[in-house]
Design a protein around this nucleic acid. Structure first.
Length: 595
DNA sequence: ATAGGGTTAG
């Protein structure tokens, strides 16, 4: 390649920088990165004077090559050829370093620019945003404003995007105010980004207000708004907006589909997929990933296999999202061989999520030993994350592997992993299932945000149900909102301790004050609570108010309690129901024994 | 240059 370049150029009559640059530009604009860089090397070698245009093209090529060492070399050549102080080239160097993920170098270059222009500022904001440092991006943006520079709409848009990336609603509102001040709030790109920012920060009303302004409706603002409703679970609102959209893209379809899967409405999701297939030929890797999530959740492996075949035929299997969704689908359908096979074929395109899915698939089926093996294999290739540890701790809990569990706990502490609510819960769960309630308590007490439910279950698991009431009191004191699992555990504790009145009060309060519909288990607990304490009047009244037909298990309990406390009428009632459920064996249940 | 997706848990 190098030879052909130089031959070609030698044949030319004029070999000044101009024709070299023309070629360089052609290569670089057409994505011929290697060719452009080779040509540049020849240029330098032959002593052709490199101009601003030369470096602009070479830097563009460096940016697509994502090679930080190469970028540093070109950076030094820019200085050597006397272009220090050229704001365009220096901004380009900031850009290239940023693209390579070398934000320290990017920032150093930026700070060296004597008079950064609006493009320089845009580049630094954008790169911080892409690097995942939204805070820093917003910080640079406000520095720009303090210098009284007027940002481009793209820069404003990037700064707003940065706010959404870390949930900075306060900062977002301030930028919105600034946009109004300089009359940029009606700019198409800016207003769409604002809608998206408000939506992602959970302020749907503000998003809607901007969306409803005249002239701000297009596919993108519609899609943002639909997405906002969909991620907040407001699917009927999302659907209404979707139906009135002027046109649809594959993204708008995917947004709706994601909404249905997020709300676990698998039926509607499938229905929507059928509608989608009938309306458009557009299907991409996101659609397929979501489709596989649905197959995994139902679960329907045959459907999943059809999607797999489709993905294979259309070349989507090399996409890591599709690959991971496939792993998950096979795992959730219980086909661990399928998961393993997929995982092996993904050897060139797998990431830490793939490993986590593989781990979870084994752990979910109680195959903790295999999960442990996968974990040690994983350490050689990928970084474990909180997901990894969560799964591993659950696997330890299942096989009472206290020592391994402790090692994982120690590993997390020594490597500075953040131990959040979920991790605290997983640790408490592991320690209490391994019957080490002392450690479970220590983890629980030391946590800043506590997962009370796991501690309640731990106490119940270790025969310390009395402590559940202390936990409930502490919860109330700290204003922590109980959820379904809290009540389930609390009711179990009432059963264990004969706390009938408290149980009844909790059961009432569950739907009255917390709008939580009791589950079957909660009704069972109440039946046990009344029955075991011989409160047959209350039991009878409770059964009369049941909003559904009692289950066989409930009836058997009622039958047994009635026998014990000689509550014949209720016992006969239960026996009749049970006999109706078992017509093949008449009179299996009799409250008065035949003599 | 502004819109979408995956892995932890009772």
């Amino acid at each position: 390649m190098r030879r052909s370049c130089s031959t070609k150029c030698r044949a030319e009559t004029r070999r000044d920088g101009g024709s070299w640059n023309a070629m360089l530009t052609a290569y670089s604009r057409n994505g011929k990165t290697e060719e452009a860089l080779d040509l540049f090397a020849v240029m330098i070698g032959e002593g052709v004077s490199a101009s601003e245009v030369t470096f602009a093209n070479v830097l563009a090529s460096c940016g697509s090559k994502l090679d930080v060492w190469l970028s540093r070399q070109v950076h030094s050549l820019v200085a050597k050829y006397g272009f220090s102080g050229n704001v365009i080239l220096e901004s380009s160097i900031v850009d290239v370093y940023g693209k390579c993920g070398a934000m320290i170098d990017a920032r150093r270059m930026f700070d060296e620019i004597e008079y950064p222009n609006v493009v320089s500022w845009n580049v630094i904001v954008r790169r911080y945003l892409e690097f995942g440092e939204g805070n820093e991006a917003v910080g640079m943006f406000s520095r720009m404003l303090r210098l009284n520079l007027k940002p481009m709409n793209y820069t404003v848009s990037n700064a707003i995007l940065a706010c959404s990336s870390f949930g900075g609603l306060t900062e977002g509102v301030q930028i919105h105010g600034f946009c109004c001040k300089i009359n940029m709030d009606r700019d198409g790109v800016v207003s769409n980004t604002l809608i998206d920012m408000y939506a992602k920060c959970g302020d749907l009303e503000s998003a809607r207000t901007i969306f409803d302004l005249p002239c701000s409706k297009n596919v993108i603002s519609y899609t943002s708004m639909v997405s906002a409703c969909a991620i907040s679970g407001r699917m009927s609102e999302a659907r209404e907006l979707f139906d009135e959209m002027p046109e649809w893209t594959v993204i708008s379809w995917n947004v709706m589909l994601a909404g249905y899967t997020r709300t676990s409405d698998w039926e509607k999701a499938l229905e929507f997929l059928i509608l989608m297939r009938r309306s458009t030929r557009d299907v991409d890797h996101v659609t397929l990933g979501l489709f596989l999530n649905i197959c995994a959740a139902i679960p329907d492996m045959n459907l999943g296999k059809q999607v797999h075949r489709y993905a294979y035929r259309h070349g989507f299997c090399s996409n890591v999202f599709v690959g991971n969704a496939l792993l998950d689908m096979y795992g959730k359908c219980g086909n661990l061989i399928g998961t393993r096979n997929c995982f092996s074929t993904m050897s060139h395109s797998r990431d830490e999520v793939s490993w986590n899915v593989l781990l979870t698939s084994f752990a979910r089926r109680g195959m903790s030993e295999q999960a442990m093996l996968v974990f040690s294999e994983m350490l050689g290739e990928a970084q474990p994350s909180k997901f990894t540890f969560g799964t591993m701790l659950a696997a330890c809990a299942n096989i009472f592997a206290l020592d391994t569990g402790k090692q994982i706990h120690a590993f997390m502490i020594s490597h500075g992993y953040d131990i959040d609510v979920v991790m605290t819960g997983a640790l408490v769960d592991m320690y209490s299932k391994c019957r080490n309630i002392a450690y479970a308590t220590r983890v629980f007490n030391g946590a800043s945000r506590k997962d009370v439910n796991s501690m309640i279950l731990g106490c119940l698991h270790n025969g310390m149900s009395g402590r559940v009431f202390e936990l409930l009191d502490a919860m109330e004191e700290e204003g922590v909102r109980p959820d379904h699992n809290t009540f389930r555990g609390a009711l179990r504790a009432c059963v264990c301790n004969g706390r009938v009145e408290l149980g009844a009060k909790l059961f009432e309060s569950m739907s009255e004050n917390y709008y939580l519909l009791p589950h079957l288990e909660d009704y069972e607990s109440m039946i046990e609570l009344y029955g075991e304490n011989g409160l047959m009047d209350e039991l009878e009244a409770f059964l009369k108010k049941l909003p559904f037909e009692p289950t066989a298990a409930m009836l058997i309990k009622v039958f047994d309690f009635s026998r014990k406390y000689k509550w014949l009428k209720l016992g006969e009632w239960a026996a009749d129901r049970l006999n109706e459920l078992n017509p093949s064996v008449p009179f299996l249940f009799q409250i008065v024994d035949d003599e």
